[in-house]
Design a protein around this nucleic acid. Structure first.
Lengths: 171, 171
DNA sequence: GTCACCGATCCTATCTTGCAACTGGTTTTT
DNA sequence: AAAAACCAGTTGCAAGATAGGATCGGTGAC
């Protein structure tokens, strides 16, 4: 997946960066799923990414400055991938994409609850989420975010839907 | 490009619809460039799309309900493609994509002026633009929009930048 | 010492893309 | 009336991307 620079149009250039079927999925899992390691991304991938594709995309995202990579001090072979400001600022795009998909595509209820909450929360929630990501990935903002994190809230809402649906089935 | 339905996640499904290098480019040219015919999309394509790819993507977008196709009464062989509500509602996504690209990617000045104005105008301008598109493509809203259209404004701004840059070079 | 885990890489079959030539028909120009 | 240009695509081919699975050498927990 080379960068062609077909034109200097912002939409075109954005597509050249993440206009494929995997790059945004990986970033989604890092942003909303909190994944930081290769194996986490590989084994918990809902869509079943192949290891060679994952390796290729991670390398590409590193080159593009959307991610950084560091050694994990707890395990010599583990690498920790971090978001950069560039990828943290994809949150509004993810939110819009989720909102659009929720309306027009056959989404599953439990997987769209996050998109729904993100849409309801609007830019205020997005900003709070982005600040949390900056704290987590860039070490910016000295003290921890107060109260429950946005990601934890979204995750809790997701699990509540799953629990409700399971109860409905077994009832 | 099949629809795999890898998962019911809204972001994933959105990517399965337009997570490739051409679908959004075609929709961009229809939305911001006002293109309605195959040859217009083919010959005025800034990025140089191939005719088979264009044909394939148009067919796909028709199947997905993002476009409709009708005979052109003025020419027996011409077909007119129209946006649907589904694709008109991509305007906010295009705006966010353009805003992000303008900050982080090497965009050209003249091609990013539209994104800049769209960002400045915010949701109010997006709604006005979407209403104009509904009038133009869906025949909704009896009377024509008052004053200059959003697309004409964006186009004028683009041409002003081109003119200024040309003047600067020849001066 | 064994076994699961670590981030990848290699191989192969299949799918997608880009490119150029071409099709059958229609409108415009000369 | 003949020629040229335009219309929406289609076809064939080569190159590149993807999916899936096996594999690699090193690490850490038990």
């Amino acid at each position: 997946m080379p960068l062609d620079r077909r034109s200097g149009c912002p939409i075109n250039l954005s597509l050249e960066v993440f206009g494929d079927r995997w790059s945004l999925i990986i970033l989604r899992d890092m942003i909303f799923g909190g994944r930081r390691h290769f194996r986490e991304l590989l084994n918990h991938s809902m869509e079943g990414i192949a290891s060679n594709i994952l390796a290729d995309r991670l390398r590409r995202l590193l080159e593009l400055g959307m991610l950084t990579k560091a050694d994990d001090p707890t395990h010599k072979q583990k690498a920790i991938y971090s978001l950069t400001e560039m990828s943290i600022q994809l949150v509004p795009i993810m939110a819009q994409l989720g909102a659009w998909g929720r309306v027009w595509l056959p989404v599953s209820e439990e997987l769209s609850i996050r998109a729904e909450l993100l849409e309801q929360g609007g830019p205020v929630l997005w900003d709070r989420f982005m600040d949390e990501l900056r704290h987590e990935h860039l070490g910016i903002g000295a003290q921890k975010p107060v109260g429950e994190t946005v990601r934890a809230e979204l995750q809790a809402a997701y699990e509540a839907v799953v629990a409700r649906k399971t109860a409905a089935v077994t009832a």
